[in-house]
């Protein structure tokens, strides 16, 4: 009997490890690829110098507007700066702007969404209408309005994009909170006579927030696209920076001579945004038990 008792935990652990391995090997290759790409971008934002051979600002006037070569993997710009180095060094700014924008959006959306679902009737209706009204404003236009109000720098771009995308998340949070509020377990808690605060913080808030984790991940990719769109218009981060949108803006003048100056950073944005959506869609599906 004692022997059995001793071997049980070990067997359990093995079983768990095996299970983990089995579930990991079921992960589709595309999801792996996305995770890899996000990991690479993260690495580039933390330690860009370890990934590149050139300084992002080093000019090489002998190799101006070069297409892809073995020396310059992704070509050079009009004063011979290595595009791959600039891209890797720009990752941090693009990534941080996306992350911060998402944070701003969620911080604004949480109170709106909760109020829209839980507040007393008149407040709830007011907030509902407000969310609907704000949803009618195009994200880019609201972001542009706030960039104008706050001034064009990376921090303000993040804030503006966050404000612009907040209404969509507010609606999502509101829907999720309503779903939880009307659920059987909340009804049970009410019937058991739990206090309102206990029900709110032990049942409603955690269950309404949990699905937000994958959605936040999806949103970072979208926020990166929006902020690079602002920069592309020349209204966000300005060209000396190598933020990806700023690279696009800088490349606009060379569309005919050196299209890669636009296509490469654009593709980087697309790939990173796609990776975020692929990875977090997968996680979302997993967490919902699909």
């Amino acid at each position: 009997m004692p022997a059995l008792k001793l071997s049980l935990p070990a067997g359990l652990a093995q079983g768990r490890l095996g299970q983990t391995w089995a579930s990991l090997s079921r992960v589709p290759p595309l999801v792996w690829l996305s995770a890899l790409l996000i990991a690479f971008t993260l690495w580039a934002s933390i330690a860009p110098a370890t990934l590149v051979a050139y300084d992002p600002l080093e000019t090489d006037l002998a190799n101006v507007l070069m297409p892809f070569t073995t020396e310059h993997w992704l070509g050079t710009d009009e004063i011979g700066r290595d595009l791959y180095s600039r891209l890797v060094h720009g990752a941090r700014e693009s990534f941080l702007i996306g992350l911060l924008a998402m944070l701003v959006a969620i911080v604004l959306a949480l109170p709106l969404g909760f109020l829209g679902a839980l507040a007393p009737r008149p407040v709830r209706h007011g907030v509902d209408r407000l969310i609907e009204i704000l949803l009618g404003f195009p994200t880019l236009l609201v972001a542009l309005l706030f960039v104008t109000l706050l001034g064009q720098d990376p921090l303000n771009v993040a804030i503006a994009v966050g404000i612009g995308s907040a209404p969509g998340y507010a609606r999502l949070i509101r829907g999720q909170t309503l779903l939880v509020r009307n659920s059987a377990y909340v009804e049970a808690a009410v019937a058991l006579g739990h206090t309102r605060a206990a029900i709110l913080f032990r049942h409603i808030v955690p269950n309404a927030i949990r699905p937000l984790v994958p959605i936040t991940g999806l949103g970072v990719g979208k926020a990166i696209v929006w902020s690079s769109s602002l920069s592309f218009l020349g209204l966000g981060v300005k060209p000396p920076s190598s933020e990806w949108g700023a690279l696009l803006a800088a490349g606009k003048g060379q569309l005919l001579e050196a299209p890669w100056l636009l296509v490469v950073p654009g593709t980087a944005v697309v790939l990173v945004a796609l990776s975020f959506s692929t990875l977090f869609h997968y996680l979302q599906a997993r967490s919902e038990g699909a």
Binding site: V225, S228, S229, F232, L248, L255, L256, P259, L262, V263, G266, T267, V269, V270, A273, L274, S277
Partner: peptide, 18 residues
């Protein structure tokens, strides 16, 4: 659905106009 407009526009412009 996930394509940024500027990227798609650039590719179409390069392929079909240039």
């Amino acid at each position: 659905a996930g394509m940024p407009h500027y990227w798609l526009g650039l590719l179409l412009l390069l392929a079909f106009a240039v």
